[in-house]
Amino acid sequence: EPSQADLDALLSAVRDNRLSIEQAVTLLTPSSGGGSGGGSMDAKEILTRFKDGGLDRAAAQALLAGRTPA
């Protein structure tokens, strides 16, 4: 399960175009075949909204942490 520091680094990389959204989703869902963790939004949607400015960093982190299976 990614830590808050991992999520923060991942969000920074996506925002700075050092990591594509697809690459980030793969890192967030290493063994689930890329499927959502059952959250209301999947990781790709969360990351896309964050990059487009629709979500701030704290909200994106909380959503990603919340949808990651324990």
Rank of each mutant, 00 (worst) to 15 (best):
E1Q: 12
E1A: 11
E1L: 13
P2T: 13
P2M: 15
P2A: 11
P2R: 03
P2E: 10
P2W: 15
S3I: 11
S3T: 06
S3F: 14
S3Y: 12
S3V: 15
S3M: 15
S3C: 14
S3P: 10
Q4D: 09
Q4E: 13
Q4C: 15
Q4N: 12
Q4K: 15
Q4W: 14
Q4I: 15
A5L: 15
A5T: 13
A5E: 10
A5V: 15
A5N: 14
A5Q: 12
A5S: 10
A5I: 15
D6L: 15
D6N: 09
D6T: 06
D6R: 07
D6Y: 15
D6E: 15
D6I: 12
D6W: 15
D6A: 09
L7F: 04
L7S: 02
L7H: 03
L7G: 01
L7K: 02
L7N: 03
D8R: 04
D8K: 06
D8P: 04
D8W: 11
D8T: 07
D8V: 07
A9I: 07
A9E: 12
A9P: 03
A9M: 14
L10A: 03
L10N: 01
L10W: 05
L10C: 02
L10G: 01
L10I: 12
L10D: 00
L11I: 04
L11E: 01
L11D: 01
L11N: 00
L11H: 00
L11Y: 02
S12L: 09
S12N: 12
S12R: 08
A13N: 04
A13I: 02
A13K: 05
A13H: 05
A13Y: 04
A13E: 04
A13L: 06
A13M: 12
V14L: 07
V14Q: 00
R15M: 14
R15K: 13
R15C: 07
D16N: 05
D16P: 00
D16W: 04
D16R: 03
D16M: 04
D16G: 05
N17E: 09
N17P: 00
N17V: 03
N17M: 04
N17A: 05
N17K: 10
N17Q: 05
R18S: 10
R18F: 05
R18T: 13
R18M: 07
R18L: 13
R18G: 04
R18Q: 08
R18A: 08
R18C: 07
R18N: 08
L19H: 01
L19V: 07
L19T: 04
L19Q: 02
L19C: 05
L19F: 03
L19N: 01
L19P: 00
S20I: 02
S20M: 03
S20G: 04
S20Q: 04
S20N: 05
S20H: 03
S20Y: 02
S20F: 02
I21S: 00
I21W: 01
I21M: 03
I21E: 01
I21T: 02
I21G: 00
E22K: 05
E22M: 06
E22D: 12
E22C: 05
E22L: 12
E22W: 04
Q23M: 15
Q23T: 10
Q23D: 12
Q23E: 13
Q23G: 06
Q23K: 07
Q23Y: 08
A24E: 00
A24V: 06
A24K: 00
A24T: 02
V25R: 02
V25W: 04
V25Q: 04
V25P: 01
V25K: 02
V25I: 05
V25S: 04
V25M: 11
T26V: 11
T26M: 13
T26C: 13
T26N: 12
T26G: 08
L27A: 05
L27C: 12
L27I: 12
L27R: 06
L27T: 04
L28I: 07
L28Y: 03
L28K: 00
L28S: 02
L28M: 08
T29K: 09
T29P: 14
T29S: 10
T29G: 12
T29L: 09
T29M: 09
T29H: 12
P30A: 11
P30G: 09
P30V: 12
P30Y: 13
P30N: 13
P30K: 07
P30F: 07
S31W: 11
S31K: 05
S31H: 09
S31N: 13
S31V: 07
S31M: 09
S31R: 03
S31L: 12
S31E: 15
S32F: 11
S32H: 10
S32Y: 13
S32D: 13
S32I: 12
S32W: 15
S32T: 11
G33H: 13
G33M: 15
G33L: 08
G33F: 07
G33D: 11
G33V: 09
G33I: 10
G34Y: 06
G34Q: 07
G35V: 11
G35E: 12
G35H: 12
G35L: 11
G35K: 02
G35Y: 07
G35N: 09
G35M: 09
G35P: 14
S36T: 08
S36I: 15
S36F: 13
S36L: 15
S36H: 12
S36N: 09
S36R: 03
S36M: 14
G37Q: 08
G37R: 03
G37L: 11
G37W: 10
G37F: 13
G37K: 07
G37T: 09
G37V: 11
G37M: 13
G37H: 11
G37E: 08
G37P: 14
G38S: 09
G38H: 12
G38M: 15
G38V: 15
G38W: 13
G38F: 15
G38D: 11
G39V: 10
G39L: 12
G39Q: 09
G39N: 10
G39H: 15
G39Y: 10
G39C: 12
S40W: 14
S40A: 12
S40I: 11
S40R: 05
M41V: 08
M41Y: 08
M41W: 12
M41D: 05
M41L: 08
M41K: 08
M41E: 08
D42P: 06
D42T: 14
D42E: 10
D42N: 09
D42M: 08
D42F: 11
D42L: 10
D42W: 11
A43Q: 07
A43K: 05
A43L: 15
A43S: 09
A43H: 09
K44N: 06
K44Q: 10
K44T: 07
K44M: 05
K44S: 08
K44P: 03
E45W: 05
E45H: 05
E45N: 05
E45G: 06
E45D: 12
E45A: 07
E45F: 04
E45S: 07
I46D: 01
I46N: 00
I46A: 03
I46V: 10
I46E: 01
I46T: 03
I46Y: 02
L47C: 02
L47K: 00
L47N: 00
L47S: 01
T48A: 08
T48V: 08
T48C: 05
T48F: 04
T48Y: 05
T48P: 00
T48D: 06
R49M: 12
R49D: 04
R49T: 04
R49N: 10
R49V: 04
R49Y: 04
R49I: 11
R49G: 03
F50H: 02
F50Q: 00
F50Y: 14
F50T: 01
F50D: 01
K51G: 03
K51D: 01
K51R: 10
K51A: 05
K51S: 03
K51E: 02
K51V: 04
D52N: 15
D52R: 05
D52E: 14
G53T: 02
G53W: 03
G53R: 03
G53N: 04
G53S: 03
G53Q: 04
G53F: 04
G53M: 03
G53I: 01
G54L: 15
G54N: 12
G54F: 13
G54V: 11
G54I: 15
G54T: 15
L55M: 09
L55Q: 01
L55F: 04
L55V: 04
L55D: 01
L55Y: 04
L55H: 02
D56G: 05
D56M: 04
D56N: 08
D56K: 05
D56T: 10
D56C: 06
D56R: 03
R57E: 08
R57D: 04
R57F: 15
R57C: 06
R57S: 10
R57Y: 14
R57I: 08
A58T: 08
A58G: 08
A58F: 10
A58K: 09
A58C: 08
A58I: 09
A59C: 08
A59P: 01
A59V: 06
A59I: 08
A59G: 06
A59Y: 04
A59R: 06
A59L: 08
A59H: 09
A59S: 12
A59K: 07
A60R: 01
A60G: 01
A60M: 03
A60E: 00
A60W: 02
A60Y: 01
A60S: 03
Q61M: 15
Q61A: 11
Q61L: 14
Q61F: 06
Q61E: 11
Q61R: 11
A62H: 09
A62E: 09
A62L: 07
L63R: 02
L63A: 08
L63I: 05
L63D: 02
L63P: 00
L64M: 03
L64R: 00
L64I: 06
L64H: 01
L64V: 02
L64Y: 01
A65C: 06
A65M: 13
A65Y: 06
A65Q: 09
A65P: 02
A65K: 08
G66L: 11
G66S: 06
G66M: 06
G66Q: 11
G66I: 10
G66D: 12
G66Y: 09
R67Q: 09
R67C: 11
R67F: 14
R67H: 09
T68N: 15
T68Q: 14
T68L: 12
T68S: 09
T68W: 13
T68R: 11
T68F: 13
P69K: 02
P69T: 09
P69N: 11
A70K: 02
A70S: 12
A70H: 08
